[in-house]
Nucleic acid binder design. Structure first.
Lengths: 139, 139
DNA sequence: CGGTATCCCTGAAGATACTG
DNA sequence: CAGTATCTTCAGGGATACCG
């Protein structure tokens, strides 16, 4: 977990990723939407590319256009960002979420990301046992 | 989401919370387990208490002992931390996770936190529509 | 448009010494 | 044991100017 944070944990990095999930791909668009300084954006993008969550390449339509796209591991961060967003909705915005996620086909809202075991049953924290590998379990 | 990060996003804060989920409650235990400087630990704990995710109080067994415990909103961060841990397991450790979570009663491993809609169906990113409130949707 | 280069500022973090 | 106080270092960030 610490390693994961090392790679994507900085504040701007997460906001950049959020924009990526929103479909933003170009330098100037990140810049305008986030109101971030160019040098900072440049550094964060580099960092994210090195971390393997973004990919930098020329656009297929226009080779002069450069775009940043989520890699597979980047896309796989969706549950993290959404879990964070849902937490913020519950505990900061008191349920009045500034962003909503829905199933684009059915319109059904996204369910709260909760803990479940392999059988799909929801688990509470009390049911959960954490084991460091090579150690016996603790609560 | 940015607001959520503002409250709990710093590196040490997340590691402290991880220890809390592991059952650690006392200053000295955080200090030893994390190898963190006292002043830094002190500052981060204060921050977390102010953010409302930890609570500082005297122990019930021994009133001289001070303990830090997860509040309800703190406990509710579990899905965020676990989603992050699972991502790290997949993309950094290549499936060889240094930590495992299991159902303490049945031993069943924790399922991957994935996106589901209200019906419990798993959603892919493609199925997901993100809407800023007051805006029309984007991918 | 998509960056670099430069300068400055701030806050997080580390080391260490001290305290009730 | 659970901190506070002080000092230093460093990375992240902001502003601005410049470049191919």
């Amino acid at each position: 977990m610490a390693q994961a944070l090392e790679r994507v944990g900085e504040w701007w990095s997460l906001l950049i990723l959020r924009e990526c999930f929103g479909g933003v791909r170009r330098f100037g668009d990140f810049e305008r939407r986030l109101g971030i300084a160019k040098n900072v954006l440049s550094a964060r993008l580099k960092h994210l590319v090195e971390a393997g969550v973004l990919e930098r390449r020329a656009s297929k339509e226009d080779a002069r256009e450069i775009e940043y796209r989520l890699t597979e591991s980047g896309k796989d961060l969706a549950p993290v960002l959404i879990a964070l967003a849902q937490w913020g909705d519950r505990w900061i915005y008191g349920g009045k979420a500034p962003v909503r996620f829905v199933n684009r086909h059915t319109g059904a809202p996204l369910a709260d990301l909760g803990l479940r075991d392999d059988n799909g049953e929801r688990l509470s924290l009390r049911d959960l046992q954490m084991q460091r590998v090579g150690e016996e379990g603790k609560e």
